[in-house]
Nucleic acid binder design. Structure first.
Lengths: 117, 117
DNA sequence: GAACTATATTCCTCAATGGGAATATGAATC
DNA sequence: GATTCATATTCCCATTGAGGAATATAGTTC
């Protein structure tokens, strides 16, 4: 994974928001959708973009795709994700996303690996 | 300055190389040109790009434009530049650029603010 | 003021990106 | 096997970016 590929992923607000949420654990696409309030296509495409550059990994569970940060991130990726966390901590959009994540977590947890149904 | 603007600047190898050199002090365009071995248009354009996003500042000295990192960088910028330094330290291209910088520094210093002439 | 120097800008072309509408895929359920 | 559900993919369009050739600009020097 090249350093530039990491930064390519970071230069879009939607992807930054996804990574911010991802830092707190893996989720399926419809959960990201609900937390960010973004349409399905947009969410799915950006996750695919992140995946194409190795910033996320996918696991298939029934109908769902669970996206999470890599199990073994490179040194560069770890450093940049940590830096991102630091930069983002006080920004409104990102805090709001995390607030929604917290609020929706019980609902998500209610129905197996995914509370979509 | 938005976080995304910083990452936009970081997602191109030439600009990463420029920033890496810049971390060791301001220089004029032709010096960057010589260190990176890139044509004038390319160098000038990427510096303009960095400037448009506030990652560098320019000072005019006679015919030269001296590009340097901002005197008062934002917290985000500082964090990301530090992270970049850390990520780049062992990569060949970047080390090579710094080696050239070191080698050429005396020559640069020889003629006032710029040793081009 | 003419020539030179360092740098920026303008055109051009090509490739990549973002976003949405519509459609495809593939697993689960009835 | 038809339907539903979660997700991906395809097409479309508009914007942006990278790179180079050529030209413009503006300061310096003779």
């Amino acid at each position: 994974m090249e350093l530039v590929n990491i930064y390519e992923c970071l230069c879009d607000l939607t992807r930054l928001r996804l990574l911010n949420v991802l830092a707190h654990g893996p989720l399926c696409v419809c959960h990201f959708q609900e937390i960010l309030g973004e349409p399905q296509v947009k969410t799915s495409k950006h996750l695919a973009y992140l995946r194409s550059r190795g910033l996320v990994e996918v696991e298939r569970v029934g109908n769902w795709r669970i996206y999470g940060l890599p199990a073994k991130p490179s040194r560069e990726l770890r450093a940049n994700l940590a830096c991102l966390q630091d930069c983002v901590r006080e920004k409104a959009v990102f805090r709001r996303d995390l607030a929604r994540l917290k609020k929706l977590s019980p609902k998500f947890a209610a129905t197996g690996p995914c509370g979509c149904s």
